[in-house]
Amino acid sequence: MLTPLASLRTGLELRLTADARAWLHLALSEAADAGEHDQARGLPPWERHFVTAGRRCHTTQQQQGSSPDPVDAARVLILHAAAPGTDAVVALYRRGSADERRAVLLALPHLDPPPAAGAALGLVEDALRTNDTRLVAAALGPYAAAHLDAHQWRHGILKCLFTGVPLAAVTGLEHRAAGDGELARMLEDYARERTAAGRAVPEDLGHALRLARFDETPARPASPQDRAEGSES
């Protein structure tokens, strides 16, 4: 069975143009040699590839617009191959464009060695403070599911409801929300506030609330159908 990253790479390669595939091979090979770079000579080649992926990683005509985003995928693979230390991961995020920052967040659960938890959580929290929904969604992936404390995680869920990020983007929602009485209270308060203002309650809210109240079994995945049902209740 393929690992998630091997599947990601295979899926990406199938979608790339020949030129982009050659670029990806070069980038991954230079990333694998990352340890040998003399920092005095400026940006290491792998980091240059990471930064410039958006203009190198072209998909074929038929594959445009399909997901996952090919540039995100390429950046995650490059970062994994370079295996940077915690300081380098943090610097990459801090110096990155929004797209680069998103790729760092997506790569967090895959990095080997894993980054120091405090530093990596600092990046997740930084992204959760933004209003860029692409960053908010990327921040609530597997890394946050495993490491983010309960208070921050609950606020992340509320932020998704505020900004229109579908809760299907939140990894581990079913398990973390299950039986979380404080989350249930926050969701109910939010629903009351929206209703008092004469505004619609986000349709995802009902699904999360049922999980938090234990009305829905945690084993059920959040599918689009689940959310449609939630809007009717």
Binding site: Q64, N131, T133, A137, K159, F162, G164, V165
Partner: peptide, 20 residues
């Protein structure tokens, strides 16, 4: 390749709803 605003659902709401 920016798409039409009506096609921007999940990426569009933090401003369209006035943010926080």
């Amino acid at each position: 390749d920016a798409t039409a605003p009506e096609a921007q659902l999940f990426e569009g709401n933090s401003i369209l709803r006035g943010g926080e």
